[in-house]
């Protein structure tokens, strides 16, 4: 069965880019444009991994991460952001990986493969 990734980002252009790129890798992709929406998606349909932007209006990624880990302890979350200093933020330590946004998506894809590969 195809693994399903939930992409959470407030920028539409980036959501679509991730969708296309990750689908090309053979994954199923679900999209959410805000923290609130992402929690709703997780309730509705089972996802195998969440790719989460940190800085979003409304509920930010750190808060989403906290709630996800409360409810679905084993659901892997990959944080994706332009801010490297979040690495020092205790709130982000619960994430399974941390990727800095870059137009070269190789590192991101590899990280996703590593995590999803472990969970067969």
């Amino acid at each position: 069965m195809k693994k399903r990734i939930l992409v959470v980002d407030d920028e539409e252009g980036l959501r679509l880019l991730y969708k296309e790129e990750l689908e090309d890798e053979g994954w199923d992709v679900v999209l959410a444009s805000s923290g609130e929406e992402s929690l709703q998606r997780m309730e509705e349909s089972g996802v195998d991994l969440v790719l989460l932007d940190i800085k979003m209006p409304g509920m930010d990624g750190v808060e989403v991460l906290r709630r996800v880990k409360e409810k679905w302890k084993d659901l892997p979350v990959v944080l994706c952001t332009a801010y490297p200093h979040y690495k020092r933020d205790f709130g982000t330590w619960a994430s399974d990986a941390y990727v800095i946004k870059s137009s070269d998506l190789t590192e991101l894809k590899q990280t996703l493969k590593d995590i999803l590969g472990k969970r067969h």
Binding site: G13, L14, L17, E20, A82, Y83, S102, S103
Partner: peptide, 21 residues
């Protein structure tokens, strides 16, 4: 740098990512 990082990285990712596609 922090502000710029966010404001510039997202559009860059868009430009670079779609250019690659």
């Amino acid at each position: 740098a922090a502000t710029l990082a966010h404001e510039i990285r997202n559009p860059l990712l868009s430009i670079g990512g779609y250019a690659a596609r």
